[in-house]
Design a protein around this nucleic acid. Structure first.
Length: 424
RNA sequence: GGAGAGGUGGCAGAGUGGUCGAAUGCGGCGGUCUUGAAAACCGUUGAAGGUUACGCCUUCCGGGGGUUCGAAUCCCUCCCUCUCCGCCA
């Protein structure tokens, strides 16, 4: 959530940020509601002050066994007036909050300008030794490989739940599990994260806290009778661990890492990237989340990206890092780097990670604060990044490490986890 | 799922219609004492909003709504926690 004070004082900047994100500009409406809201608060508060004084007086009269009726009759009018003002305030305030929650985070001033994903900036490319993107070798794609080796069964997954719900079989299932465990252990042991395992369903408050609601409502699976959502990412439960808390300054920075399945309806993207793992309704992901002091979030984002990259270097998988331009930033993000892995079978880059700095945007929505040295509670900055999502990572892994005879060589760091060196 | 009990400040725990933002204890912070520390004693110690100034006002006792001149206290509703029973990985 954006700071109302910023909105009041710099409406032009806010409008520019909204425009850069190609979001709906409701700034003027918010400002007029804010003005009305403050008028009502002032009027009501003044009357309440009166009421409190008179109320005390009535108490005194009663105790002295004097006639309090005239005072009570008079108070009735004041009370009615307060009720009317509070009723209107409630309406105005609800609308005000609703609109405020719909304002996206503003792009960070260092985020590249741009009008679409075409303006994203490639920051780096990492290729394994001896690997070339122009390799003219014939690569089988992951769907073909998975079928031949009997490790992925998309047809039966579809039978069980529907298209986009993958079924892993045999060494496929075990490789997936190995991958997840390897990534989690790497982040815990080498990068200093603390592991969490969270609920995979979350309530509307949590979804609003991280910014999935209200905007992404149609992209989530919802369990109507319990008013719960299946999480689209572990970012939601992990960030909400500290919702409505004031943390001790000494506890920061906090770095959590956790596995979760992710559920996405992918509404509106039917027919796009439908093959195999490219776009699925359920996938596995290891997520990293950080809570830091405001002055540390810039550096924390760099570390987050590096922690994710580390996985790919260890697995010897080609990747590149992209910085998203303002127009391509998600609703809550101020700055974001995507990591894309190379798919030799598809001959294209696949988004396998997204590392974002939200500044105080989520913290404000979820009320996550810390007590600073001078004793005043302040909002933390939150960040998160995939480290990484296995679905697309699995595509790159299988295709990149396939052998000339149609098998797959398991990257060295995964062998102990998997219990085998090759799939053939 | 059924029955019961309960949700109050960082924690524990009083408070059943008016002087209650809320006793008391613990913890935290500051001070006195001390060579230093402990103990003891004294003081202080929540958040949000409004106004704007460093003062005043308002709100907040699980969430929401209501009754009343006035609600932590009464009513309705939802959520959560605990105990017992049932079911179950």
């Amino acid at each position: 959530m954006i700071d109302v004070k910023v909105l009041r004082e710099n409406p032009k900047e806010v409008k520019a940020g909204i425009a850069a994100k190609k979001a709906t500009d409701n700034v003027d409406e918010i400002l007029s509601l804010d003005e009305r809201r403050r008028e009502l608060i002032k009027e009501a508060d003044d009357l309440k002050s009166k009421r409190n004084t008179a109320s005390k007086r009535i108490g005194e009269l009663k105790r002295e066994k004097k006639d309090a009726q005239p005072a009570i009759d008079k108070m009735k009018e004041t009370s009615d007036a307060i009720k009317r003002l509070d009723d209107e305030l409630r309406e105005v305030d609800a609308k005000f909050h609703e609109l405020l929650l719909a304002v996206p985070n503003l792009p960070h001033y260092t985020a590249p300008e741009g009008t679409s994903e075409k303006d994203n900036v490639e920051k780096k490319q990492w290729l394994p030794k001896g690997f070339s993107l122009e390799d003219d070798r014939e690569y089988l794609d992951h769907v073909e490989l998975g079928k031949r080796l009997g490790i992925l069964d998309f047809e039966r997954g579809a039978k069980i739940a529907g298209a986009g719900f993958p079924l892993y079989v045999g060494k496929g299932a075990r490789l997936e599990r190995a991958l997840l465990n390897f990534m989690i252990d790497l982040h815990l042991e080498k990068h200093g994260y603390e592991e969490v395992m969270t609920p995979f369903l979350a309530n509307p408050e949590s979804m609003t806290g991280t910014g999935q609601l209200p905007k992404m409502a149609d992209d989530m699976y919802r369990i109507d009778r319990d008013d719960l959502y299946l999480i689209p990412t572990a970012e939601v439960p992990i960030t909400n661990i500290h919702r409505d808390e004031i943390l001790d300054e000494a506890r920061l920075p906090i770095s959590y890492c956790g596995y979760s399945p992710c559920f996405r309806r992918e509404a509106g993207s039917y027919g796009k990237d439908t093959r195999g793992f490219l776009r699925v309704h359920q996938f596995n992901k290891v997520e990293m989340v950080k809570f830091v002091k405001p002055e540390d979030s810039g550096e924390a984002l760099q570390n987050l990206v590096n922690d994710a990259e580390d996985v790919l270097r260890a697995l010897d998988i080609p990747y590149r890092v992209i910085e998203l331009c303002a127009a391509d930033l998600s609703f809550a993000a101020a700055k974001c780097f995507d990591i894309e892995t190379w798919s030799p079978g598809e001959k294209k880059w696949l988004e396998a990670s997204s590392c974002s700095n939200f500044l105080d945007f989520q913290a404000r929505r979820a009320s996550i604060r810390y007590r600073s040295a001078d004793g005043k509670p302040e909002f933390v900055h939150t960040l998160n990044g995939s480290g990484l999502a296995t679905s697309r990572l699995m595509v790159s892994l299988l295709e990149r490490h396939q052998t000339s005879d149609g098998g797959v060589r398991v990257p060295e760091p995964l062998r102990d986890y998997a219990g085998f060196d090759v799939i053939d």
